[in-house]
Amino acid sequence: MTTDTLHLRRLAWAGVEIRLDDTRLLIDPLEHAEPLAPVMGRPRQPLPPVDTPAGTHALITHLHPDHYDHDLIARIAAPGTIGCHTPVAPALREAGLDPVPQEIDQPRRIGPFTATPVPSLDWRGHDSDQVAWIVEGGGRRIIHCGDTMWHGDWWRIARDHGPFDLAFVPVNGVIARFEGYDATVPVTMTPEHAIEAAVALGATSACAIHHGLFHNPPTYTEQPDIERRFRLAAEARGIMPVLVPDGALVLLG
């Protein structure tokens, strides 16, 4: 299979679209920001609509509403089109969806793609199950890391599944103070963490996600100067930085 038919697009926030032939795979697509306003504030710019034609599938990293947009997912929820980690499947079924659950490291074919969930670490602990997704297709291998904290499984993921052409990495390093949480340290990866994760994963390039759209101090405070720091960290570690706006294509080298 040739590589020139694989198309990647960064959607709003942490959303990513991967297309190959007639199959469209969305990871954490977000279209509706209204439920996020009490904590994360209103988005700095409107969220663009997400195309969901026939042949669209979706993968969910976890159930926080900035990654799991129920109304959008329900719009494409034909049997076999929604993938998730096994522990969150009951909640999706209660919400009226029919997900395809997968265990960690269990691959599944989705048209021309192979999708595999691997470990990720959410700052709220075990009551907020989260995974990263590896997607292979068109001779390429990428990983979408959700909105993870730094964790020690990067090297195991690289050993068992890498190397990667591209890692989509969260970079906003948010300081979060809501619902009984009161952190004074970042609870998701900073730009520097994200580049170090890409290095550990054996990724050639890293695309920054999960930044720039929400900033609502003191409950949700994003890191300053994210893009400059991301570029500097990437240059220091020999990683190709990818910084593109919502809706833009992501080009693979």
Rank of each mutant, 00 (worst) to 15 (best):
D4E: 14
L6K: 14
L6W: 09
H7T: 09
L8T: 02
R9N: 10
R9T: 08
R10F: 05
L11F: 01
W13Q: 07
G15M: 14
V16Q: 13
R19W: 00
R19Q: 02
R24S: 02
R24Q: 06
L25T: 02
I27D: 12
P29D: 12
E31V: 00
E34S: 09
P35V: 04
P35H: 02
L36V: 02
V39N: 09
V39M: 10
V39T: 11
P43L: 15
R44F: 06
Q45E: 15
P46D: 14
P46T: 15
L47F: 09
P48M: 15
P49D: 03
P49T: 02
P49H: 04
D51A: 08
G55R: 11
T56E: 11
A58F: 00
I60M: 02
L63W: 11
H64E: 10
P65R: 13
D66M: 07
L72K: 08
L72H: 03
I73P: 00
P79Y: 13
G80R: 05
A95L: 06
G96Y: 07
D98P: 05
P99M: 11
E103I: 02
I104N: 13
R109L: 04
P112A: 09
F113T: 03
T114R: 12
T116W: 10
L121T: 13
D122S: 04
W123N: 12
W123E: 03
H126N: 14
D127M: 09
S128D: 06
D129F: 07
V135L: 13
E136H: 07
G138P: 00
G138E: 07
G139E: 01
G139M: 01
I143D: 11
I143P: 01
H144D: 05
H144P: 01
H144C: 05
D147Q: 12
T148D: 03
W154T: 00
W154N: 06
W155K: 14
W155E: 09
I157G: 01
R159K: 12
G162R: 14
P163G: 06
P163N: 11
P163L: 01
A167Y: 11
P170M: 05
V171L: 10
G173T: 01
V174E: 13
E179I: 07
D182P: 00
A183N: 12
T184H: 12
T188P: 06
T188V: 07
T190E: 02
T190F: 02
E196F: 01
A197N: 08
A198G: 03
G202R: 13
G202I: 03
A203E: 00
T204N: 12
A206L: 03
C207R: 08
I209M: 14
I209F: 10
I209A: 04
G212H: 09
F214W: 11
N216M: 02
N216Q: 12
E227M: 08
R228H: 10
R231Y: 04
E235G: 08
G238P: 04
G238Q: 11
G238L: 13
I239L: 14
P241D: 05
V242A: 03
L243P: 00
L243H: 09
V244G: 01
D246A: 11
A248P: 04
L251H: 15
G253E: 12
